[in-house]
Nucleic acid binder design. Structure first.
Lengths: 213, 213
DNA sequence: CGACTATTTGAAGGGACTCAAGGCGTGTGG
DNA sequence: CCACACGCCTTGAGTCCCTTCAAATAGTCG
């Protein structure tokens, strides 16, 4: 999941800092530069005209976002946590070939990584029942989470998780509690997560009845 | 939505035929060729290990699928209707640059088109309530549908729509009936669709209360 | 015409949403 | 250092929507 070293110039560029909530680029902005996440989490946000707000994906260290697939950005990127990142200039879309010639494999790899994140949300939201959705969500983010002694750091707020899962913060809280009571996960502290039974988590994500776990 | 003429060789290649239900390529297969849809609908399918099946996207004439973003196909492609398409050979992933050099803009356009389809499903499934989801789904597919005298041809079965929307065929049927009773759409025949009030459809997709429409 | 699939409808049950309110954690300012 | 304020998380209660199971009808293909 971490494509360290995917771009040759990564190590030489200076990192920028963004605070939680800061907007990196907005939907409709012209694609001027890609953003290479060093540490922290970025959320891709879509605003509907009625004011509803959806989080379409979370991006993690190693991901490169803002890729010039078209002239304009296709979503708004916000820092979900405090963030360390670097920016790399991009040629206008008409000259995209120049962008790809320098490292076509790198570009396509990053495009694929981005697309995977969107596909994953679809697969998660397509499941029936919040338990299955939450379990699938946890499984999908765990590989990208920072671990310390078997305890994961769940960096996004339950509000963000709710927007991602298409539900309410209350339901997120209740579902996590349910997983705790089933001894599938543990959350010793705010934002800390331990997986007690990853097998049970996978069964739940597949839609197996909770009573059978 | 229809990128006619996106690839120069389209007009000169001979079209293949596939029957409804036929598999064009399977998840995990090596990416040997891209598929250029001429007529009909393709569904991108994901099978979970427990046998559950999700439709991640529908693809329409003008879409090019099976793009070599990685070595292997990322989903299974099946003909949702009888299909006319053409295949174009693709160099192995390591040589992807050669693929892009001939027409980098074309490749990126098609990649973007594919990614948009996956993003769209996420945005649809992220809405609350089946009415909103169904309305958003109809809005998203209408531009790709074949029209005859204001009557659209809805080519996918309600089973497929259910798999796409993450619900059951019964709920799909009931939701369509509800839209009919609200005079928002009409379905004079199986697979035929008329939009009576596209404005109401958009309001419903935005989550406005049905009683307010 | 007959078999099969797709669509439609009914009824019952449970799960998720909403509204409302209370507890916890964090950070800020006096 | 403490008090306060604010946002985040947690919990409760009621309602409605969606799911599931079951069965009938319509449409399609041989």
């Amino acid at each position: 999941m971490n494509h360290q070293g995917g771009l040759a110039y990564r190590d030489t560029s200076i990192a920028d800092l963004a605070r939680a909530g800061e907007t990196l680029f907005a939907e409709g902005d012209p694609c001027r530069r890609t953003i290479d996440i060093r540490s922290g989490v970025v959320r891709a946000v879509n605003h509907s005209c009625e004011g509803h707000r959806q989080i379409m994906a979370f991006f993690f260290p190693g991901d490169v976002i803002g890729l010039p697939l078209s002239n304009e950005h296709r979503y708004t990127a916000e820092a979900a946590t405090s963030l360390l990142y670097s920016r790399h200039p991009v040629l206008p879309f008409g000259n995209a070939s120049v962008q790809t010639i320098s490292d076509p494999r790198g570009l396509l790899l990053h495009v694929w990584q981005e697309e995977k994140r969107f596909m994953t949300r679809g697969l998660i939201l397509g499941r029936v029942g919040m338990l299955a959705r939450m379990s699938a969500f946890l499984i999908s983010v765990i590989p990208a989470l920072h671990r310390s002694v078997g305890l994961f750091d769940l960096p996004m707020s339950q509000n963000d998780i709710a927007s991602y899962l298409g539900t309410s913060p209350e339901t997120v809280c209740r579902t996590l509690r349910q997983l705790r009571e089933m001894q599938v996960i543990a959350m010793p502290r705010r934002g800390r997560l331990a997986i007690i039974s990853s097998q049970a988590l996978e069964l739940l994500a597949e839609g197996v009845e909770p009573s059978a776990v």
